[in-house]
Amino acid sequence: MTHHYGYVGALLAAFLFGLSSTLNKLALRDVHPIVVAGSIYVTAGIVLMLLRHTPLKNRILDMLNSGAKTQKFFSGRDALILAFVILFGSFLAPLSYMIGLERTTAVNASILLNTETLFTVLIAIIFLGERSSKRTGLGILLILTGAVVVSTEDPGQASLTENLLGNILVVFSGLCWAIDNNLSKFLSLKRDLLLVTSLKGLFGGSALLSLAFLLGVPLEIPAQSVPYLLTVGSLSIGFSLVLFLFALREIGAMRTGAIFSTSTLMGAFLAFLVLGESLTPLKVLFGLLMLIGVYVLSGEEAEA
């Protein structure tokens, strides 16, 4: 399988994850943030674990692993990496983000969450030794610039010196997800990506729901919120993470993390259709800038 499929996988993962921003907003009207985070991760784990016990399992894994050198069995080292992935990506990141979001403005959170891409790129270069050319840097810069504008209603309203604790927690969530992204690269070498992702969802989501219970947070979910949580859990978390792992294997953490930022473009478009939020010509322009950035990144493989 060529590396170009990795770019397709990253874009599809971003597309599916982009659905979550609007659907989560709808669910958050009636459900506590920690319960939302826990529910969608548990849903992802259950859906993927059930899928593993259907005839579709081998067909899906054969498509994802076509031509790739994968590892069938888990070692003790893999289990340790998975534990850290769950800790950072499925527990600390969503928890700190939800708490931070309550203590800062939506504008600040939208801008600061893009630090996930920066952290992912830096960790991939410094610790994983991934190669960064001028073309790679340009592509990432175009994507990140577009993401900041597309994800923010009015960047001029940002005040990063106020609501300091909330801002720090949002940045910390970006760092945690970046650590998760880079550690997950090692797990992407496993053949059974469905198992990896389902375990991540089940353990991370269960930990969040357990924390909500210990804090006395109401766990009730109104019937009207269930479809939103099921959709986000199965598509935006479950299948999106499977495709994300596939992309990590094919094109690395740096490029996958950058392309995944295009989820903000899908989120903005869906928010415009469903919630009536603004989709200004400026956002459309910078959305196109993000797609140009993806093209610049993928074109590097053709020249390699």
Rank of each mutant, 00 (worst) to 15 (best):
T54I: 03
G139S: 08
K134L: 13
S261D: 08
A44V: 01
G18W: 01
F73A: 09
S278Y: 07
I143E: 04
L138V: 11
E102R: 12
S206N: 04
A247N: 04
E301V: 13
L113K: 15
R59D: 12
L230W: 06
A13P: 03
S225A: 15
L142H: 07
N181C: 03
V226Q: 04
C176F: 12
S96V: 04
L160Q: 07
I292W: 12
L209G: 04
T145R: 05
E300T: 04
H4L: 15
L80C: 11
T231D: 03
A207Y: 01
S206G: 15
F73S: 10
V47M: 07
G299V: 05
E102H: 13
K25C: 10
L48Q: 06
F213Y: 12
N65F: 00
V217K: 10
L248D: 03
M98D: 13
S188W: 02
L48A: 11
N114Q: 15
N182V: 15
I168L: 11
L95N: 08
L160Y: 11
L61T: 14
G139I: 07
Q224S: 12
L80E: 09
L279M: 12
G45T: 00
L235H: 08
W177T: 11
V284R: 06
P281Y: 08
I81S: 07
L208W: 06
L112S: 02
L80H: 10
L270G: 06
R131N: 13
A27C: 15
V284E: 09
N108E: 10
S225K: 05
N108C: 07
S133R: 15
R59A: 13
T264P: 04
M254E: 11
L199D: 03
G137N: 12
V170I: 15
L183T: 00
T197R: 00
V107F: 05
V149S: 07
L12M: 14
I81G: 05
L80K: 15
F269H: 02
I179H: 00
A44L: 04
S278F: 10
V242M: 09
T70M: 08
D78G: 01
F286C: 08
D180F: 14
T197H: 02
M63I: 14
V150H: 09
T115W: 10
G146T: 02
L288N: 07
I99A: 12
D78M: 00
